[in-house]
């Protein structure tokens, strides 16, 4: 695998109570690439994604075994500041979830709580983030209107802008286009291509065409196990594993 490694897991087991959700997963995700994680519903792919910003911690009875590393640092180490970790590792959720405030305040929230606006113009930070998320031209005249007035696709790009405003290094995307129409989906996918120059992106999707279109690497998770991980071209053209082949050819899923 070429290039430096950004995210890594070593023999990770993940439990919800007594339930083993992820089994012995080891993966090395390269920097500044888009990595897609595919698999049928309920296979644990969202849980896998949430390992990297410790969002599973919020849930009752969650337990991690093994190592999860970002830039070689174990993020489940007890002296890791979870808030700082999450600032570095942004997340876009399946359902667009803007706060019920203005467009401006949505994007400005992160910089405000992290004090990034000190000595800098908050408006500039917000404009920058919105431009990166390809939303600026659509909202520049109504920054102080409620974010809930935007369309679903615009809301999702607003959520991306909100993430980018805190200057993360990694973007985790949990089926970001599954609630959107095809045109909005296309916009998000184009956006991702532009973003990968600056960020390491991991996207979870159950849509195999999407994985094939946008990603450089693809991992296939089935029943909590990482079945195969390889460059996207190889996964889709020469899958090594019978399960992978069956899944991508639509024999189950």
């Amino acid at each position: 695998m070429e290039g430096p490694i950004k995210l890594e897991t070593q023999n990770v087991n993940f439990y919800f109570g007594d339930n083993l959700v992820l089994k012995n997963i080891s993966i090395r995700i390269p920097s500044n690439r888009i990595t897609a994680i595919i698999g049928p519903s309920g296979c644990g792919k969202s849980t896998f994604l949430r390992l990297f910003n410790r969002m599973n911690d919020v849930l009752e009875g969650a337990r991690v075994e093994g190592k999860v590393l970002i830039d070689g640092v174990d993020i489940y180490n007890s002296n890791i500041d979870v808030a700082m970790l999450r600032r570095k590792v942004g997340m876009v959720f399946q359902k667009p979830n803007p706060f019920p405030t203005s467009i401006f305040d949505n994007v400005a929230y992160g910089p405000r709580i992290h004090g990034l606006h000190k000595g800098k113009d908050l408006r500039e930070i917000v404009e920058n983030a919105l431009r990166q998320a390809a939303l600026w031209d659509e909202v520049k005249d109504k920054l102080h209107r409620s974010a809930l007035e935007l369309s679903g696709g615009q809301q999702q790009r607003l959520c991306i802008a909100r993430c980018l405003a805190v200057e993360p290094e990694v973007l985790l995307m949990d089926e970001p286009a599954s609630a959107l129409d095809p045109i909005s989906t296309l916009k998000i996918e184009e956006l991702m291509q532009g973003l990968k120059e600056r960020y390491t992106i991991v996207i979870v999707t159950h849509n195999m065409q999407e994985a094939a279109r946008v990603s450089d690497y693809t991992g296939f998770i089935y029943k909590g196990e990482l079945v195969e991980f390889a460059p996207t071209v190889d996964i889709f053209e020469h899958p090594q594993n019978k399960l992978t082949e069956d899944y991508i050819t639509g024999r189950f899923g």
């Binding site: 969002m55 970790l85 999450r86 600032r87 570095k88 997340m91 979830n97 706060f99 019920p100 992160g110």
Partner: peptide, 27 residues
């Protein structure tokens, strides 16, 4: 309140208290 508000705020690196004060209470 939708759980999404809380998740979105925490995922941005806000602490629990910041989330309560800046997001949940206003909402």
């Amino acid at each position: 309140l939708p759980r999404e508000y809380k998740e979105a705020s925490l995922a941005l690196g806000a602490t629990h208290w910041q989330t309560i004060y800046h997001i949940l209470l206003p909402a």
